[in-house]
Design a protein around this nucleic acid. Sequence first.
DNA 1: AAAAATTTTTAGGCATGACTAAAAATATAA
DNA 2: TTATATTTTTAGTCATGCCTAAAAATTTTT
Lengths: 219, 219
Amino acid sequence: MENPISSAVEDYLKAIFELGEKDIKTQDLADSLKFSPASVTGMLKKLSKLNLVSYKKYYGVSLTKQGRLMALETIRHHRLIETYLMQALGYEWHEVHDEADRLEHVISENFEERIAKLLGNPSYDPHGDPIPCKDGIMPQLLGQPLIDFAVGTNIKLTRITKQDSEVLIYLAENELKPGGVFTIEARAPFNGPLTLNKGKKPIPLSYQLAKAIYAQAAI
Amino acid sequence: MENPISSAVEDYLKAIFELGEKDIKTQDLADSLKFSPASVTGMLKKLSKLNLVSYKKYYGVSLTKQGRLMALETIRHHRLIETYLMQALGYEWHEVHDEADRLEHVISENFEERIAKLLGNPSYDPHGDPIPCKDGIMPQLLGQPLIDFAVGTNIKLTRITKQDSEVLIYLAENELKPGGVFTIEARAPFNGPLTLNKGKKPIPLSYQLAKAIYAQAAI
DNA sequence: AAAAATTTTTAGGCATGACTAAAAATATAA
DNA sequence: TTATATTTTTAGTCATGCCTAAAAATTTTT
Ligand SMILES: [Mn+2]
Ligand SMILES: [Mn+2]
Ligand SMILES: [Mn+2]
Ligand SMILES: [Mn+2]
């Protein structure tokens, strides 16, 4: 009768949300969570019984309204914590994700409210990811992938959708963070690398990486 | 082969330490952790196999050097977190314990080091409990129970060894916190109440409570 | 010192949430 | 459209860490 939602459940809901909320395949979830497909099937049955997902065998899984809210709650925790760790505790960019992944499951609403207030109720985390509001509304995603911009455009970075530590360290070294302003210097054809410039030396980015970095046109 | 210490193990080690480290009875542990004695026996066998305790059937359990260090580590986390929550996030006195009980198991060494540094490597938490150093050295306990002082003595509070929320709220309302200065105004005989005074109105404390509050003689 | 009471351990269960291996369903190729 | 490959589910295991009930050991009373 009691309903103490486990970290495991929260992780599944978060993963489903991040894969697109609807019609998510067992395989994709398994890859994302690094569990076997069989384990995922087992948990999906359980989530279904809890009315957190609707699950159609062999077809896919989708969040229910309730499950979606729960996912957003965990993501709000995660992103507020990431922001707080950098802002208040001087964490490096690449250090926050793993810490937040553990803390997100154990902080109280009290903790959440206090750090949110202290940070001025931010709408975006240090990677430019939107922080859902308490009521489940998600701030707008800002910008488009770098590969959508023409050579010569001045852009301001808005979001980095990578969490690989190595990559983040490299990006930070080159000041590639949300808010950073650059010019698209070159783009090689056939999905080749894209080169950014800030006046110093050119920064080459693989096509894959350039696709994961979002920006807006600037001055 | 891997050795990912669980929260459950950490809680057992912490409880054994707090009950006195040595020759702790199954029953006392069970009461303290609110588990059945049978469950405690099961876990003690496991801890023994991990060399974290030495366990003699029907006699009692003691921490090994390794287990003691691990207990101190968790207690250090707990007390640093309590201090941080009050200092940096404006938590009330009675709110910190439960939050710390969850956070203590998931923060990284990075987190620990950062908050310790930010707090100026404190030796005592907001309740006056000593914060063990990284090397396992415990700062000295300060003061003696209030019931050890004679009527008329001026005292400075050093420690409150209660964590009951109700009690802490009452104490805080009367400014009974470490650092607070009072006079022992009266003591009823036969383990009767003790009365403190700070110039305003007298504060009566049950014998039990007065025994849980520590102080040093002051001016 | 035997009987009674208490404490502790053993035995057996259960929920959670992972795993592997095999079966079944679905998708792709011949 | 049948054969083959891939994906997903089922079936059965396992570790963790709690539980209750019963047996065994220890302690206290008489
Ligand atoms: Mn919350
Ligand atoms: Mn983020
Ligand atoms: Mn630590
Ligand atoms: Mn404390």
